[in-house]
Design a protein around this nucleic acid. Sequence first.
DNA 1: TCCTTCGCTTGACACGGTGTCTATTGACGA
DNA 2: TCGTCAATAGACACCGTGTCAAGCGAAGGA
Lengths: 199, 199
Amino acid sequence: MSSDAPETRERILKSTLILLEAGRGAVVRMTDIAKRAGITRQALYLHFSSRAELLIAVTHYVEEKHGSDERLAPSRKAKTGVERLDAYIDAWGSFLPEIHGIAKALIVMSESDDAAAIAWKDRMKAMRHGCEAAIHALSKDKRLSRLHSRDQATDLLWTLLSVQNWEQLIFECGWSHQEYCQRMKALTRRLFVSDETNA
Amino acid sequence: MSSDAPETRERILKSTLILLEAGRGAVVRMTDIAKRAGITRQALYLHFSSRAELLIAVTHYVEEKHGSDERLAPSRKAKTGVERLDAYIDAWGSFLPEIHGIAKALIVMSESDDAAAIAWKDRMKAMRHGCEAAIHALSKDKRLSRLHSRDQATDLLWTLLSVQNWEQLIFECGWSHQEYCQRMKALTRRLFVSDETNA
DNA sequence: TCCTTCGCTTGACACGGTGTCTATTGACGA
DNA sequence: TCGTCAATAGACACCGTGTCAAGCGAAGGA
């Protein structure tokens, strides 16, 4: 796996990523990817046994390229719950544009392919842990609004930060990346942070 | 169109709806629909020129079956902005389970079919008008939170109430229909309604 | 009664995308 | 020089959508 023509494999992953990012909704076929990577369609199957496997590999590729650990470091080292929430939204917000293409492809494929569905659910579960940690930090500071239980708040934050919501706000509503981050922070603060004991 | 074997056409629409609702993610093929409607696959094309057209017809069918006008009446006759927002969420919240199947199918199809994409965007635009009206009512009462402009508030409410968010909260987070409505009302109140001048 | 019309059936087929198989090539290393 | 291995070339099966042509049976009018 790891030793079979790494440059070609990498070239395939990169090509897929580029096409997905550029595609903006257009369906990306195996033929397109092969052409872009400068190999034949059949050769793709020497590296990935199916389209689903390729897409899944791309998600891992993106994740290790823009290391999720370093991305989340500011959030982890935040002193207060509120800071942590803000840092998490900033981190996730700048990650979203990177993963949008592949995420979309995987979501669509999930409808008809079990492996893709499982892989995507797994990624979303990981993302949910981040939400849970932020809410937990808030709760520890006694700043979590009494409006929600911890679970409910996690459900909401997780849903709020979904890829689809980002997509809608950016592409349908015309928000900029900046606006997204800034408003999401304001919104979640209003929603989850109790306003008592201010500083 | 309206005179060609109405019972068969209706049977097709009903069958499609049932399959989509039951399918829960599974792809519904033309063959499946035909079988369920008790006709051949080819006969489907005597009534609908393509899968996209059929799906679009189903959305209209659902909409007129559960008349959107009567559904929205409580929202329209609300006295205050807050009441209007609540009524809108109740109306939309009870409509969502009805349209979930067809909505999902149309969303997935939008990825590869222009007609489906346009039809779905159109439905969402209509739904957005409801959001806009609710925010407008709030604003007229001087109860819209200063945190958002009217457009921003509409963007947010519209996004918050999306089919995908409903789906995630219901199926992934296990919320009940009741919980969804009640929590969405609490959430939007906290988010959009300024707490000054309380009655 | 015959004939037409109409909704539907039957069976065949084209197309596009995925995935498979086999034979072949060409480079590189032992 | 031989074997290995990545990749190619070309053919093919499968599936779902959409099309086409011929036929069938019931309803209705002359």
